[in-house]
């Protein structure tokens, strides 16, 4: 089979859409977001070792652990056990996704992908377990980074199982017959190569930024001040790079006469999230380490940080969660950009 034949096959899947598969993929993606929030809370409150065993909980089967002890015991126990239960829910949804794919999905490679999703969620759970069993903060950090990666994987699954993705080819065909319809607009104006590359670069930068943030968050007493400072500089530099990349992407998706179905909204959402994220980043520094230049901000110089305070915890955890949203949206944009180019070129 020639290169072009196989490439054509990979995009020629106009009849492969399965509502069940897409539904599972969407629910899985949505379930991962609160999982990241609660996981973020676990780190914010230093609650990673509130349950010393794994996969059980204080000797109980995790699912049979008494809810009264879970909910009315300590806060740390509540968030850590809650994180495990939410993680299990994602695992169940990944199993459902695979079963739905085996039953309804026509694309063979996508069935393999769904198996990969299930293996990824299992691996993520095992990483969490290793973090507990070894009581190792390094694994907590890796678990945090791969958690965000898993959200990107789940998002990709939702995108690749969507009606838009499946019928993009069909839209291209329709465009030959219709000059005015919305689908025709999509097919005639696929993402530019620049946009697709910018979106890919944005995704990579955003994820690097997540990794740098995780380093700062999981720093231990053994870290040298110089290393911490270097990490802060890397995090700030990457923030600037992500901002520039998101501005570029936003400019590309709103270019006059270049309305790109399925690309404009993620592009603009990313920019909004990046602005929110920069504000949250500054706030995170302030609630962790106070205002760097008190003499310039006398009002904030009166602020006393409240350790483990409600707003302090919400801000820090929201910074983590918004980072995950940026990675997720960048995944959507990246995949849709390349997909629109792929269907347009065949």
């Amino acid at each position: 089979m020639s290169r072009y034949d196989s490439a054509k096959t990979s995009v020629d899947d106009s009849n492969a859409y399965s509502k069940a598969v897409h539904l599972f993929a969407m629910v899985l993606t949505i379930s991962v977001f609160p999982l990241i929030w609660v996981g973020g809370l676990v780190t914010t409150y230093g609650a990673g070792m509130a349950v010393p065993d794994w996969p059980g909980t204080y000797g109980w089967n995790m699912f049979l652990y008494p809810p009264s002890t879970w909910l009315y015991g300590g806060f740390d126990l509540m968030v850590e056990h809650g994180h495990r239960l939410l993680g299990s829910l994602s695992g169940v949804l990944a199993i459902g996704l695979l079963i739905a794919a085996l039953l309804f999905e026509k694309r063979r490679w996508f069935k393999w992908w769904c198996l990969f999703v299930l293996l990824a969620v299992i691996a993520q759970g095992v990483l969490g377990g290793v973090r507990v069993r070894l009581d190792a903060r390094t694994f907590a950090m890796i678990h945090g980074c791969t958690g965000q990666l898993f959200l990107a994987i789940a998002t990709a699954t939702a995108v690749m199982s969507s009606r838009w993705w499946i019928r993009a080819r069909q839209a291209l065909e329709n465009s030959k017959n219709s000059k005015t319809s919305e689908v025709a607009t999509l097919a005639r104006t696929p993402a530019t190569r620049t946009l697709a590359r910018a979106a890919t670069a944005l995704l990579l930068f955003a994820y690097c930024q997540v990794v740098a943030g995780a380093q700062l968050r999981h720093v231990t007493g053994g870290t040298e001040p110089g290393s911490f400072m270097a990490l802060v500089h890397i995090h700030l530099t990457l923030a600037a790079v992500v901002l520039i990349a998101s501005l570029l992407v936003a400019a590309l998706v709103v270019r006059p006469g270049r309305l790109l179905g399925g690309v404009r909204s993620p592009g603009l959402f990313i920019l909004a999230f990046v602005f929110l994220q920069i504000c949250l980043g500054l706030a995170t520094w302030i609630v962790n380490y106070a205002v760097p230049w008190q003499e310039l901000m006398p009002e904030l110089a009166r602020y006393t940080i409240q350790a483990k305070g409600y707003w302090e915890s919400v801000i820090v955890t929201a910074h983590v969660a918004t980072g995950a949203l940026i990675v997720s949206m960048a995944t959507v944009l990246c995949l849709r950009s390349w997909r629109s180019r792929a269907v347009a070129s065949h």
């Binding site: 390094t138 950090m141 980074c145 670069a201 990579l204 990794v211 053994g222 870290t223």
Partner: peptide, 25 residues
């Protein structure tokens, strides 16, 4: 050509990741 630099940064970060988890004494 395009992504080598971001990857280098990621590699550096990963290297630092494994250097930062020491138990303090």
């Amino acid at each position: 050509s395009t992504y080598i630099r971001p990857l280098a940064v990621t590699g550096l970060l990963c290297a630092m990741m494994f250097g930062c988890g020491r138990d303090p004494e």
